[in-house]
C-alpha cells in the first residue's frame, strides 16, 4: 500500500468529560490514496470531525485524548511526532477548512494578514512576496479584484467568499492533503455547488489529496473516488464511490441513501433515519447501529460485528445486504 498518503490504524479518541468518557472514535481504520478524494459520510455526531482533528492532532485537550492507534502520513506516524514537528505539518502538508466560514476567519485581522501568516510561516517568504502569493491565491479561488480585497476584513465578504478565502488559505502552501470538513453545509444552496466545483478543479489542478467530510451523501457523489461511512465512532463501510452509491452493503449506508433529499421528486422531502445517533458515553452493545436497524437480530445486540474485506470493499455487519441494488 505504498501509494497510501494517509493511513489510520485502530484510532481511538476519547473525551473525558464530567458526565463520563465519550468514546468518540472506537478503533477506526482508514486510508487515503495519493491524489484521490475520499468522502467521509455519516450523520452529525458520528465522529467525522474528531477523525479529522485527530489527524492534525488538534483534538481539544482537555477533555479529548487520542488513546490508541497510528496515523501514518507518508509512512510517518504523526502521533509519535514532537509538537514542533507536528506544527511543520499543519497548514503545510495537511491543511484543513472548516464547516462554518462565518466563524472560521478571525474577525479582527485582514485577509491579507491571515493569509500571509501561514505563507510566511511555512514558505519562508518575506512580507512582500507573501502578499503577492496571497493575492495570487485569492485570484485562484475566484475572488474578483484580489489586490483590493486582500486588505479587507472577513466581515466584508459574503459567506461563500469567506469559504473561498478559507480554501485559498488552506491551499496557499500547496499542501499534500486537504481536509474539508463539511465545507458547504453552512452555505446557500446556490453557492454550494460552486464551492464544491472549485475544490474539485483545484485539487485536480494542484494534485492535492482531499478528505471531504459531509453528512450528505449527495454532496460527494460526483467528487469522491472512495467513500467511507461512519457511524457512532466506527467506520462501518468503505468502498469505491461506485460501489457505495450503487451496491452498498451496510443497512446504515442504505438508510443514508434513503435520507438524501431527492430534488428530482416533485416535493423535496428529506428522508430521515429513525432514531438518533446514540450517546457515545454509553454506546449500544454489540453492533452500535442495532437499535435503529430494521434487520437487527440477537447476534447484533450481543457482539460487535467483524469487518470484512471483499476486494476493495469493507463492511462491518452481521447481515450484509448482499445484492442490494440501488
Amino acid at each position: 500500500m505504498a501509494d497510501n498518503l494517509l493511513e489510520i490504524k485502530g484510532l481511538k479518541t476519547y473525551f473525558y468529560t464530567e458526565d463520563g468518557i465519550v468514546r468518540a472514535l472506537e478503533g477506526i481504520d482508514l486510508h487515503i490514496e495519493q491524489g484521490e478524494t475520499l468522502g467521509l459520510v455519516g450523520e452529525s455526531g458520528c465522529g467525522k470531525t474528531v477523525t479529522a482533528l485527530s489527524v492534525l492532532r488538534l483534538v481539544p485537550d482537555p477533555p479529548g485524548k487520542i488513546i490508541e492507534g497510528e496515523i501514518l502520513f507518508e509512512g510517518v506516524n504523526l502521533l509519535a511526532l514532537s509538537e514542533s514537528d507536528m506544527r511543520q505539518i499543519r497548514g503545510n502538508d495537511i491543511s484543513m477548512i472548516f464547516q462554518d466560514p462565518q466563524s472560521a476567519l478571525n474577525p479582527v485581522f485582514t485577509v491579507d494578514n491571515q493569509l500571509r501568516e501561514v505563507i510566511e510561516l511555512h514558505q519562508g517568504l518575506d512580507k512582500k512576496e507573501a502578499r503577492q502569493k496571497a493575492i495570487e491565491m485569492l485570484d485562484l479561488v475566484g475572488i474578483p479584484d484580489p489586490e483590493a480585497r486582500v486588505e479587507d476584513y472577513p466581515h466584508q465578504f459574503s459567506g461563500g467568499m469567506k469559504q473561498r478565502v478559507m480554501i485559498a488559505m488552506a491551499l496557499s502552501c500547496n499542501p499534500k492533503m486537504l481536509i474539508a470538513d463539511e465545507p458547504t453545509t453552512n452555505l446557500d444552496v446556490t453557492v454550494q455547488a460552486q464551492v464544491l466545483d472549485m475544490i474539485n478543479n483545484l485539487r485536480k489542478e494542484l494534485g492535492t489529496t482531499v478528505l471531504l467530510i459531509t453528512h450528505n451523501l449527495g454532496v460527494i457523489a460526483e467528487m469522491s473516488d472512495h467513500v467511507g461511512v461512519m457511524y457512532a465512532g466506527r467506520l462501518v463501510e468503505y468502498g469505491d464511490a461506485d460501489t457505495i452509491f450503487h451496491a452498498p452493503l451496510h443497512p446504515y449506508t442504505i438508510a443514508l441513501h434513503e435520507a438524501v433529499p431527492r430534488v428530482t421528486e416533485k416535493k423535496q422531502k428529506l428522508g430521515v433515519i429513525k432514531g438518533v445517533v446514540p450517546n457515545l458515553i454509553y454506546p449500544p452493545s454489540g453492533c452500535r447501529f442495532h437499535p435503529r436497524c430494521d434487520f437487527s437480530t440477537e447476534v447484533c445486540e450481543k457482539e460487535q460485528p467483524k469487518g470484512e474485506w471483499v476486494g476493495d470493499h469493507y463492511v462491518e455487519c452481521w447481515h450484509r445486504r448482499e445484492g442490494t441494488k440501488l
Binding site: 482533528l53 492534525l56 488538534l58 506544527r87 511543520q88 505539518i89 499543519r90 497548514g91 503545510n92 491543511s95 484543513m96 472548516f98 472560521a104 476567519l105 478571525n106 501568516e117 501561514v118 510561516l121 511555512h122 478559507m166 488559505m169
Partner: peptide
C-alpha cells in the same frame, strides 16, 4: 482552531 491548523505556535 483555524489558527492552530495553520501550524502557528
Amino acid at each position: 482552531m483555524t489558527a492552530r491548523a495553520k501550524g502557528l505556535k
